[in-house]
Design a protein around this nucleic acid. Sequence first.
DNA 1: GATGAATGAGTGTTCATTCAT
DNA 2: AATGAATGAACACTCATTCAT
Lengths: 224, 224, 224, 224
Amino acid sequence: MSALSPPSTQDSHNKRERRKEARPGELLQAALELFVEKGYAATRAEEVATRAGVSKGTLFLYFSSKEDLFKAVIQSNLSRHLMAWNQEFEGFEGSSADMLAYGLTSWWTQIGSTLAGGITKLVMSEARNFPEIAAFYEREVVKPGQHLIERILQRGIDQGEFRPLDVHHACMSLVCAMMYLMMWKHSLGPCSAANPSFDPETFLLTHLNTLLNGIRQTSPSGTL
Amino acid sequence: MSALSPPSTQDSHNKRERRKEARPGELLQAALELFVEKGYAATRAEEVATRAGVSKGTLFLYFSSKEDLFKAVIQSNLSRHLMAWNQEFEGFEGSSADMLAYGLTSWWTQIGSTLAGGITKLVMSEARNFPEIAAFYEREVVKPGQHLIERILQRGIDQGEFRPLDVHHACMSLVCAMMYLMMWKHSLGPCSAANPSFDPETFLLTHLNTLLNGIRQTSPSGTL
Amino acid sequence: MSALSPPSTQDSHNKRERRKEARPGELLQAALELFVEKGYAATRAEEVATRAGVSKGTLFLYFSSKEDLFKAVIQSNLSRHLMAWNQEFEGFEGSSADMLAYGLTSWWTQIGSTLAGGITKLVMSEARNFPEIAAFYEREVVKPGQHLIERILQRGIDQGEFRPLDVHHACMSLVCAMMYLMMWKHSLGPCSAANPSFDPETFLLTHLNTLLNGIRQTSPSGTL
Amino acid sequence: MSALSPPSTQDSHNKRERRKEARPGELLQAALELFVEKGYAATRAEEVATRAGVSKGTLFLYFSSKEDLFKAVIQSNLSRHLMAWNQEFEGFEGSSADMLAYGLTSWWTQIGSTLAGGITKLVMSEARNFPEIAAFYEREVVKPGQHLIERILQRGIDQGEFRPLDVHHACMSLVCAMMYLMMWKHSLGPCSAANPSFDPETFLLTHLNTLLNGIRQTSPSGTL
DNA sequence: GATGAATGAGTGTTCATTCAT
DNA sequence: AATGAATGAACACTCATTCAT
């Protein structure tokens, strides 16, 4: 697209080339969708290939095994996931409570309610069988996320907005609601004819407000 | 039963009988361990049998299929407890806050901290592939558990202990912490050299107190 | 039953003894019924034992294997079969045509329409896997039966009732209708909602009359 | 097709393609042989594959199950012939007696004397255990065959060649001889050192002539 | 003799992976 | 590079047979 892109290959080859270069990405995308939908074990390699528009054999040209494909799916999506996460929270101005509310909302919009939410469920489900992925996830996603939230909480304490508290515990109290929503959405949720009036975003904000009510320096009157 | 009954006959009868009666329990225990450790799909029926000290064929003498075994594992480890709790709380005296704290503590002691806690993660992981099990779990575990907690919350509201609130949301705020702990403990937990000073039970009670702080009719001095 | 039966065992033991001596017969009867109904391969040894009112282990006390049981079932029933057959036809007076008609009718009544008819189907179905049984059946049932019919046909020729013909071929033309009925009755018949007005005995006599019409020295007017 | 088309491409394409197109036929042939020889239940799927020169997995590439293979064997060996006969007889010129004789002869040549004749015995043997196959066979083979023969008989009656008769019974009288031959040939036949001078085709025509003698409007001089 | 709990070889079927084309 | 026919190891489940009681 840029005029500065390498013009080494002839234009006539571009369509093919672009196709070739896009292959891994198309396979990863197809695999992500299927793994999230059906789980790792229940997804057949051929399904992934078919959805990506190639043959079974081609899949193994790009990934040496189904396990290798799985790792690539998770890691490539976690990185994307991560970048979005980091950009989102930089340079926010306002009260710490507002920061948390904003963070929760945008997390739900950009991750929880999308395919990315399925990755978390996938990682949790397969962590025991793929320790490398578990370690990667913890290092690259869990730890930075916790750190960010704990910093916001600490900021609230330092500025007298929240009463002194164990930021680690408070962070988990906050985060666990998101985790619960994601697991539910990709496991029992689709199987249960549950209360259709339930709205995840409302629940998240209710949860936050109840917690803030419990940790604020002075209890305000309204709670949602 | 009588001390004078011929011991020889008894014993000869017993060795076989005792085996037979113990088998289902031994198989369920082996299945629980392996399912929690490796996941349902990744556990071979023969492994379960071997760990229980019997042959493959014997497993199918007691459980008609691998899925049936899975259901039995859920039922024997979770349904049982829920029924007991329902009865226990029928005659409970004391504040609703105490009831919740007691419930959380005994849940952690009897389920969360044991292998049975892994079942929740197991069910969540496999729900999409086994809708029947998902339905079974929702009917036998989720619904009764929610019902119990919501009744306690409603009691607190009716007695003026809690301010009026959406019991469904509040129940989820409470429950999600337990879910999070269990998911963590059986997925990323074993792979991470996490903070060793973290104590799940303390976290649960902290979480409860923060929430109670947020929903109580009159804010007490401070409970964190 | 006879007063001369060996009185060696005490009367008090009789019930048990009679039971014990009846066991093989009860097992053979149960096996016959099930083999005829479901075929050899599809009948489980345990089913046979259960129907005979004993346990699985007991079956193998009397028959060393399922195959052995099968052979015993066939051979014991063929003998019975055979005795009936022989007694039936001895000393018949009347025209050869009447002999054939009588023979066909009584064959249908006593064999074709009973469990014994199922044995023929069983033998045909399993002959390739049990050559001994096939040989036994041919020697003890097929050959004598053919011989009898061919003698009757020859008698008809000798007495000028039938025109000269190949008795072997004529015998087969006659017999094949019985075979067809038996096979049908125990294979496709039960699976098809076939013409309910079809009556095997009528068919057999029609078949015979048509053949006799073709065989007789002078064609009579009526043909059934 | 063109003599000038590049032979290299053709060949490289063909070796693989020709295999693929030949596979179903090779598998059907192997299955036919083994099923007829040992029975359906006693033949292992792997044996069929091995005899066809492929691995177990390949069998299931072409037939979705063993039962499906069974059905395909029936269809490719019997249904095909019946359809051809139906068409052939549409334009047949000559007496109905000749039609029947011609039909019997070609049936013996194309089916009765070949392995395909074993299918009838196979179906009869397994019908009770595979009702779906029984229904399939009745629909695809029995019904069309009966219909064809009954039409010919009716034609003979309408044209004054045969005396009025019950075409259903007459059809069975005719057909039962073929059935008997096939059952015999694939059950007791191989086990017995039977009369080597016996010729099935001659028997069939003798049988037909005897019946025709019995059903013709005017008895001719003698046909046996 | 009788039992029935236990066994383990055997079967149909699936699916990740290979490799000739 | 791409294909897709072929493979064969793996797995859930069955059932004839054994043997301790």
